[in-house]
């Protein structure tokens, strides 16, 4: 009987390598940098091609105590969540690869305030930093420009950079040596289009991460899943404007969902709250990793541990 030939798939394209953070040698102050991308295969198919860099996990911290977060999260982070610097340290101790600092929507957000918080976090941790505004164009513009100045040379990721405000954010990234998080609604062509607009302004492609948006499990995750799978296929087929690593925020999406956030008035069939909530976060995340995510932003340290374990298992071959 003729032997079965393993059906391998060789691609012409490759995901671009992107490095977050800069050490003293490169004009920053980070203890280490994190590089993602470089794959010449669909996720974790080591018999098809190379995956030089494992996907990485960022932990989300906020600039002020997030009173509206699920009690499960507030309990596990405890007092650390009351101060961004100690929160960043705690996240690093739990094994995060990156810190994702999110500024909550607040009337007295200002450039000076954001500058102060970013400085505290940079001083508290040696990990590369991702900084997101509240997602409102005006406030994002105000604070991210100041953040870019304060973090000069640190190769921060600034987000979100979307169609409405990309000019301001990209200009700030260009001027101060940072990266941007290019976010679009879940759509292959919108994603490509924004990458083109950003690179037309002169920002090198190795300073862009693509953020195709995602929904939590049960809340549209399958759309994000398939859009990411299509983006990664396009990248491997050689479409340069899709060859960027992908960042998604399954933690934020999960913990907005009722299943994770609360145990009040939910059906008995939903089971134990903590078990359900952690499963919600890790399953949303693991499924997105299988479809091409390079950077995932989580909220719960137990999820961080489990997802890191899964990534390690998938990288071994």
């Amino acid at each position: 009987m003729p032997a079965i030939q393993i059906p391998t798939q060789k691609w012409s394209g490759k995901v671009r390598e992107v490095t977050l953070g800069a050490t003293a040698a490169d004009g920053g102050t980070r203890a280490k940098t994190v590089t993602v991308g470089g794959a010449t295969t669909l996720p974790f198919l080591h018999f098809d091609g190379e995956t030089p860099h494992a996907p990485v996990v960022a932990i989300e911290i906020q600039d002020r105590y997030p009173e509206d977060w699920s009690p499960i999260l507030l309990e596990v982070w405890g007092d650390a969540a009351k101060d961004p610097a100690s929160w960043a340290k705690a996240a690093e101790e739990k094994g995060a690869d990156l810190i994702y600092l999110k500024f909550a929507l607040n009337d007295d957000l200002s450039g000076d305030y954001a500058r102060k918080i970013v400085r505290q976090v940079l001083d508290a941790t040696g990990l590369p930093l991702i900084v997101f505004g509240p997602g409102q164009v005006e406030q994002d513009n105000d604070i991210l420009v100041s953040v870019a100045e304060e973090g000069e040379g640190e190769r921060l990721v600034l987000g979100v950079c979307e169609e409405k405000n990309y000019r301001t954010i990209v200009a700030a990234a260009l001027a101060h040596g940072h990266l941007v998080d290019a976010r679009t609604a879940m759509d292959v062509n919108l994603g490509k289009q924004l990458n083109i607009l950003i690179s037309d302004m002169g920002l090198p492609l190795d300073r862009i991460v693509m953020d195709p948006t995602t929904g939590a499990l049960g809340y549209g995750m399958e759309y994000g899943y398939s859009v990411m799978e299509r983006l990664r296929l396009a990248a491997l087929q050689g479409d340069g404007m899709t060859q960027l690593p992908m960042l998604v925020t399954p933690g934020e999406e999960t913990w907005r969902a009722k299943e994770a956030r609360t145990d009040e008035g939910v059906p008995e069939s939903w089971g134990d709250w903590t078990e359900r909530a952690i499963n919600w976060e890790v399953l949303t995340t693991s499924t997105l990793l299988e479809s091409g995510a390079d950077i995932v932003v989580l909220r719960h340290p137990e999820s961080l541990k489990r997802v890191k374990g899964m990534i390690n298992a998938l990288m071994s071959h």
């Binding site: 899943y225 069939s269 089971g271 134990d272 709250w273 359900r276 499963n279 499924t287 299988e290």
Partner: peptide, 30 residues
């Protein structure tokens, strides 16, 4: 998460070692 991988990536019959609603619910939604 391994069950989730099997669901998305080509498992036809997927066997779990135990049953618990807090795990079954998210897997069924996935």
């Amino acid at each position: 998460m391994l069950a989730g991988q099997h669901i998305a990536k080509y498992g036809g019959f997927v066997v779990l070692d135990s049953f618990s609603p807090g795990t079954a619910y998210p897997l069924l939604v996935l």
